[in-house]
Design a protein around this nucleic acid. Structure first.
Lengths: 348, 348
DNA sequence: ATGAAAGCGCTAACAT
DNA sequence: ATGTTAGCGCTTTCAT
């Protein structure tokens, strides 16, 4: 009944290798981390012995001395959300290029869990890229004092970040709707802690005002498909002709519910999402949505982080210049979930 | 132009705290990791000082001594594949229950990258759960000698694992097809290194034989939507009436291509997938697919791992009993992508 | 109950 | 070019 005990082997250490090779531990160390400062032939020899013993340097022990681990962490609010796939891919590519190991942490949409993760991983990694952080500004600033850190889709004064151009994106959405004769729309809001959610709403409202539409916010809703029915039902009582959802998974959940309830999209109701996730192009009908350059965002974020963690970088400087925030373009992908506003019954 | 230097703060160490609290470092250590072996009031005091200084023990340094880090790694072949979402969720729940931190590594479908990851993370975590490993048996065995390790959807003699019941699952699929009058089907194979891919094909072929159908394998195909067109086109030339794809994302890719080419599903062709991923229920038509208990698999895997990594566990025992493999049931979810075989032109 | 000291695996001066 | 030594932050005997 007890788990089987596969025999565990003791790993070779630098001392083991040193003895077996007849050299000092420091020579072994150099052979691995400072080639060029050791004779070529002894290096060969050491490496060979090490290989035979199955030795490889312990990054943990190394880190204790140097403070550098060669690992960076990407933390996301919900790895289950296909939205983050692009960020992960981009981050992986950039990490590989910078010869960094990437680990992923999932905060499960919980600010507390996110803090715990950052706290816990802080000593084990060289830095963080935090995607769509739910942590309060203050906590983020504190974290940034302990570890290099770059934010994606979250801006905090003083911290470096890469964000999508929501101002432009939301304007594209509202313009699209207006051009189809919609006079108003409702926004299905996401989590209260979501910075990008806030940006989306601000942008939407501003654009609506400029274009003379009226905008109403519903929610907040958890951005999962399971929230679709509640959101859709709320929507239906409002008589809206168009709806913009916090993100695509919520939008798809809404779409499903509308279909269940016999509401035709886009004939009776237009729906627009954010993110252009896996599935947005094959749901029914295919979803009009604002696409971000997530892969690029992930890549740029770890590139920036890599620069921040490179040896020479970042001695404590009291008078730091404002951290740069890099803005990435967004693009509205028009599919079939949005179209002309339904005609009103007008008495002639 | 250079990245902004946010001033970095030095973390408090056990010594800092000891001095500030007027006790020895060992007392601080005990206050954190061995309460009960320190006077209650001094403990309170130490903890308070530590909090004031923002101190928390460095898991890395701790690991150097104890060999335990409180972290486990989940490695997956492609975090981008929605299939893994369930495993991740289950693993997270179980990790939280066992008070373990979970990090995720993505091997990007590369056996080499997977090995590198395991090698690199080996010292930084207490153990691994490796999902759908692409590594050769031998490499896996070697890894298991260095770290506790449990496999998901991969069986290697001697190693502990949790796997889906593909024998039953594939029989369900073939029975479903046979009951609809299909006399043959083609299997769109996945990556050559995929153990579960192999199991799927073996099961399919066996069941087909028993039920008197004929089965043909195509591929291998990369299990992404991008492979859909090639797979679908190959399929079309074969005149098959039914197709079983390596997984859902490939199946959905095929579905899209078929729609493009005007092939009606399921009237002209039935398609079945594996995994029941996000999207399988809202693609067009909704996909018939074999559902696994991925969340349970992820949960059980880290539970098992947690048991394996618990202090007392697993001293090197030479004569280990065969490791248990736990089999989880599978269930065919019939949706609208599969149905009766098209009638053949039969001359009477 | 607490302190002192050794050591975990490695790197980085400092010697030689 | 290589060996010696002193830590890195923590846990853990062993004393007291």
């Amino acid at each position: 009944m007890s788990p089987p005990p596969p025999p565990r082997k003791r790993r070779a250490t630098i001392t083991t290798v040193a003895e077996a090779a007849g050299v000092a531990p420091s020579t072994v160390s150099r052979a691995f981390s400072n080639p060029g400062r050791v004779n070529h032939v002894t290096r060969e020899h050491v490496l060979e012995v090490a290989a035979r013993l199955g030795y490889s340097p312990d990054p943990t022990a190394r880190a204790l001395g140097t403070g550098r681990t060669g690992t960076v962490a990407l933390v996301v609010p919900d790895i289950t959300n296909p939205y983050f796939a692009g960020v992960v891919k981009g981050a992986e590519r950039a990490a590989a290029e910078a010869r960094l190991t990437l680990v992923i942490g999932d905060s499960q949409e919980s600010p507390a869990q996110e803090e715990r993760l950052v706290e816990r991983l802080g000593r084990a990694v060289d830095g963080f890229v935090i995607m769509a952080s739910r942590m309060p500004d203050e906590a983020l600033r504190r974290a940034a004092e302990l570890n290099p850190l770059v934010l994606v889709n979250r801006a905090v004064p003083g911290l470096t970040s890469v964000v999508a151009d929501f101002a432009s994106g939301t304007r594209q959405i509202v313009t699209h709707l207006a051009s189809h004769g919609h006079r108003s729309f409702v926004f299905l809001g996401g989590p209260a802690e979501s910075w990008s959610g806030a940006q989306r709403w601000i942008g939407l409202r501003t654009a609506a005002e400029e274009l003379g539409l009226s905008a109403t916010r519903f929610g907040p809703y958890t951005p999962t498909m399971a929230s679709g029915p509640a959101a859709a039902d709320a929507l239906l009582t409002s008589g809206a002709t168009a709806v913009v959802a916090h993100n695509d998974v919520l939008a798809i959940g809404v779409l499903r519910r509308l279909e269940e309830r016999g509401v035709r999209v886009p004939e009776q109701l237009s729906v627009v999402g954010f993110d252009d996730i896996f599935g947005a192009d094959f749901c029914h009908p295919p979803l009009t949505t604002l696409a971000e350059r997530t892969t690029e965002a992930g890549g740029r974020a770890v590139e920036t982080l890599a620069a921040l963690t490179r040896p020479g970088a970042v001695p404590a400087s009291p008078e730091a210049p404002p951290a740069p925030v890099r803005v990435l373009p967004t693009q509205l992908v028009v599919r079939h979930s949005s179209g002309p506003a339904p005609r009103r019954e007008v008495t002639p």
